[in-house]
Amino acid sequence: MKIGIHPDYRPVVFRDPSAGFAFLTRSTMTSARTIEWEDGNVYLVVDVDVSSASHPFYTGRGRVVDTAGRVDRFNQRYGKR
């Protein structure tokens, strides 16, 4: 690898404020904000809109789509010509 062309790879906290969920991982993301983590160290924090704690697929609050009605409606419009 060439020296001096890659971004810094460091520990970063990703936080979902809507769900009150945060996790620590390594990333090249940067931020002007910091947070004191559970281990007492201070890390950069990046706020995200959706995480596994708030996404409907992972929480089980997803909507059931009426696919049978959509197929029937498609067949009425375009099918059996």
Rank of each mutant, 00 (worst) to 15 (best):
T34S: 13
R33L: 08
E38M: 11
A68G: 11
A53F: 06
V42R: 11
R26G: 05
T28H: 08
V50A: 04
H55A: 13
R33F: 07
N75G: 07
S27Y: 02
H55K: 08
S51W: 06
Y78E: 11
D72Q: 15
T34F: 05
N41S: 12
P56Q: 02
T34G: 05
Y43M: 02
V64C: 00
T28V: 10
A22C: 07
T30Q: 12
A68P: 08
A22F: 04
T67V: 15
W37M: 08
N41F: 01
I35F: 03
F23E: 12
A53G: 08
R26H: 12
V46H: 05
D49Q: 09
S52W: 07
D39Q: 03
F57S: 04
D47M: 02
Y58L: 09
V71I: 15
Y78F: 15
T59F: 04
P56Y: 04
R26N: 11
S27P: 06
S51Q: 09
V42M: 01
L44K: 12
S51R: 06
F23A: 01
G69P: 13
N41W: 00
T28M: 04
D66E: 12
G40N: 03
R63G: 11
F74S: 12
V45W: 04
V65E: 09
P56T: 06
V48G: 00
G60T: 03
V46K: 10
A68M: 13
T30R: 08
M29P: 00
Y43D: 06
E38Y: 07
N41L: 09
L24W: 01
R77G: 08
D66T: 11
Y58G: 03
D72A: 15
T34V: 11
F21D: 14
F21Y: 15
R61A: 13
N75L: 15
A32E: 14
S54R: 10
S52L: 10
T67S: 10
I35E: 09
T30L: 00
G62V: 00
R70A: 15
V50L: 10
V48M: 10
S52K: 12
V65M: 08
G69S: 14
A22N: 07
T28A: 06
H55R: 10
R33Y: 07
